[in-house]
Each structure stands twice: as structure tokens, then as C-alpha cells.
């Protein structure tokens, strides 16, 4: 993978409007034993940001493995939020023929305030990107 992707910021994805119906669907699917919005809910938006990034750099999806995911919140997501995700490549290293890509996505609300920072490690294995 081209080392110049490090520190590159990719076009924002969104806005994504958080609806009560989608939160309920996601809560049921993750066997949520709390109230409010499950903390992994922003993966909906992050999936889109990661797919756009992978398409942009020409990575083949079937060679991608999600190695790690960490969320760091400034405030909880609530129904009615309009969220935008902006992905930046933080790190890139080679490990046994695979590219290990460290991404940082910043999720902001309609006012531009940061809601959450999400770090994902994507492992792109084998062959050229």
C-alpha cells in the first residue's frame, strides 16, 4: 500500500441522522441490556467511512480483516443527532506480507462538535493493494 496515505484525511461521510427506529433495531441485534443508544452504534457510519476509504485506495475488500476497534466518547450519541465521520490514516506498517492500517475516524455532530473518536485497525493481506 502506498505509504503516502499516512496522515491523509478522506472526504467526510454523512450526515447520518440517528433515528429511534434504527437505534431499536441495533439494540435488539446486539442484545442490549441498557437504555439509550448502544456505544457501538456509530459503527453504522464508520462502516461507510471505511468502505469509502478502501475503495479510494483501491484495497480489495475480501482481503480486509477488522483487527481492532476502539471508541472514545466526548458525549453519548442520542436520537436526532446528525453525525458525520471523517477518516484519517494514522499509521501504516507491514507485518508478514500484510499491510496493517491504523485509521482514526472523528465523528462530529451538526454543530461540528466532536462526539466520538473511533480507532480501527484494518489488516490488508497478500498481494498488491
Amino acid at each position: 500500500m502506498d505509504p503516502s496515505i499516512v496522515d491523509r484525511t478522506f472526504p467526510p461521510v454523512g450526515p447520518y441522522v440517528v433515528s429511534a427506529a434504527k437505534v431499536t433495531e441495533f439494540a435488539v441485534a446486539t442484545q442490549w441490556r441498557g437504555a439509550g443508544v448502544p456505544p457501538t452504534f456509530p459503527i453504522l457510519l464508520l462502516n461507510d467511512a471505511m468502505l469509502a476509504f478502501l475503495a479510494d485506495v483501491g484495497a480489495s475488500l475480501e482481503r480486509i480483516v477488522h483487527g481492532e476497534q476502539r471508541f472514545s466518547y466526548r458525549r453519548p450519541v442520542t436520537v436526532g443527532d446528525e453525525l458525520t465521520a471523517t477518516l484519517r490514516v494514522g499509521t501504516l506498517r507491514s507485518l508478514g506480507g500484510a499491510d496493517v492500517i491504523g485509521t482514526v475516524s472523528t465523528i462530529t455532530d451538526a454543530a461540528g462538535e466532536v462526539v466520538c473518536e473511533a480507532k480501527a485497525t484494518l489488516v490488508h493481506s497478500g498481494g498488491a493493494a
Binding site: W32, R33, G34, A35, G36, P38, P39, T40, V65, H66, G67, E68, Q69, R70, F71, S72, Y73, P76, K119, T121
Partner: peptide, 16 residues
């Protein structure tokens, strides 16, 4: 959420 009575989550993560 079950353990903490739905406390506000500041960080959550893991390696797969």
C-alpha cells in the same frame, strides 16, 4: 450497561 446500570461510556474497545 448491565453491570453499571447504564453508566455513560467514555471508552470501549477490543482486538478481534
Amino acid at each position: 450497561a448491565a453491570w453499571t446500570g447504564d453508566a455513560e461510556v467514555l471508552e470501549l474497545g477490543a482486538k478481534f
